[in-house]
Amino acid sequence: MIRLENVTKSYSTEIVAVKDASFDVAKGEFVFLVGPSGSGKSTLLRMLNRQDRPERGAVWVAGRNIVDLPSGRIPMLRRNIGNIFQDYKLLLEKNVFENVAFAQEVIGRPQHVIRQQVPAVLDLVGLAGKEERLPNQLSGGEQQRVSIARAFVNRPLILLADEPTGNLDPATGEGIMRLLDRINKTGTTIVMATHDQRIVNTMRKRVIQLDRGIIVRDQARGVYE
């Protein structure tokens, strides 16, 4: 599903964010990217949906090298990839339903599909009954659930999560992890950047560890070190 071949990305001559990274992620896998702040986790995720481009190496996603993907084809790539973030990136003046529906509207899904799929995904993430709430009328965990619903409503092949529990207390974070695990079990590949030791150690998934842009460990059913 994802393959990196000797990927290097630097922001300037001094700052090499990712250095010669290579790994494979199979369909349906759940992978943690771990490492201290500034080790290149976010940069790596951003190269998977062409928010960033490496200057060397190849990035294969769903069978295509996306490094030289023409910009006109990027939207189609992104329709196969869901994104969630530490700060949720919800639209504050839209309610829960509208936030999720937005992801379908802007790629031209017809209204009848939206009316059917948005309630279903809100049900899946445990927000049934809160459709009319605005983001600031929700807890942090609930807001992250809205953002997961938005990322998942178009049934992407891959979900990229950048520190999704970073702003949440441990109990709420665990709830989010159970939800991501459920989504992973539907066959969605998940790559999640985190530096939350507890979460990594309880989930027991594959762990890729970065240190100053270099992959120093790639371990199945790993723990945080």
Partner: peptide
């Protein structure tokens, strides 16, 4: 800009935006 960022992430085309 927030809407636009989200639109781009979920795969809206440039023309649509």
């Amino acid at each position: 800009r927030r809407e636009i960022e989200v639109m781009k992430l979920v795969g809206a085309t440039d023309w649509f935006i």
